[in-house]
Structure formats: C-alpha cells, structure tokens
Simulated assay, not measured.
Amino acid sequence: MFRFSIRKQISYIKIDVSYSIFTPSKLPNAQEAQMTGLIVRLKPNTWVTEKMISHGNYDKSLLLLKGDLELRIDNSTYMIYEGDSFYIPKNCLHNYLNTSNEEATIIVYFSQLVY
C-alpha cells in the first residue's frame, strides 16, 4: 500500500504539469517494484513536455481519466478522449497536448522503474 500523503510529487518550472508517483519504492521482503505508475495532471492548452521525447529503455501505457488530448507519435497525430488508453513503445518520439478547457488527468505506467 502507498498512501496518497506520502506520494512523491514532481513538478517542472517551465511546463504546467504535475506528476505524482504512486508506485511504492519499498515493498515487503526487500523486493523492488518492476514498473512505475504516475498520475499526471496537465493544465488546459499545455503540452506534457517542451519538445518531442522518447524513452529508450521502457514502454509507456496511459489511461486518460479526464480531459481530451492531442497525441503525437512519430509523424502521426491522434485525438484521445476521456476513458481512452494508448501505448507508446520505447524509442518512439511522442508528446501530447491537453486540448480541453479543464485540467487533464492521466494514469501512466512505465514498463520499468524510472526513479
């Protein structure tokens, strides 16, 4: 179990995005987590990063809980709506923009531990 009150909060000055890691860093019997889960909150008309990015070591799976997104993967663009999920393979350039008038909330899982 990992209580909300002790989640690691991450924010970046140049972009209006907040990240909250919900994968426990300590598990019973000295085990380590094998994946990372995040809650991402993205303000309206805001990109999740300043430029297209890729993750060379891990895949990423996302579930949009609230809002609408414009997802760019390599040379393709997709519209993602509340309740939709999407998958981004490792080494794939991507970025996404909150196109709604409200804060977007996204559950993100990385296939490896990223912290």
Rank of each mutant, 00 (worst) to 15 (best):
V40R: 05
A104S: 15
C92H: 08
W47E: 11
V40I: 14
D74N: 13
Y81L: 03
Y81A: 05
S76A: 12
Y81I: 02
I73K: 04
T49S: 09
L65K: 13
M52Q: 09
Y96E: 00
L113I: 02
T49W: 09
E70C: 09
T46Q: 15
E50P: 01
P44T: 04
W47N: 14
N57V: 08
P89M: 08
V114N: 10
E103T: 08
N57L: 14
R72K: 14
Y115D: 11
V48Y: 04
E50K: 08
E70R: 14
Y109S: 06
I53N: 02
N57F: 12
V108I: 15
H94E: 00
E103G: 01
E70A: 08
V108E: 15
K90D: 03
K51G: 03
W47G: 05
L63D: 03
Y78R: 05
L113T: 04
V114I: 15
P89R: 11
R41C: 06
M79S: 06
T99Y: 12
L93D: 11
L42G: 01
L97C: 02
H94S: 00
V40S: 08
Y81R: 12
I53R: 05
E103D: 05
L62S: 13
L42Q: 02
T46D: 02
T77A: 10
S76D: 14
I39L: 14
Y96D: 00
I39M: 12
Q112F: 09
L97K: 10
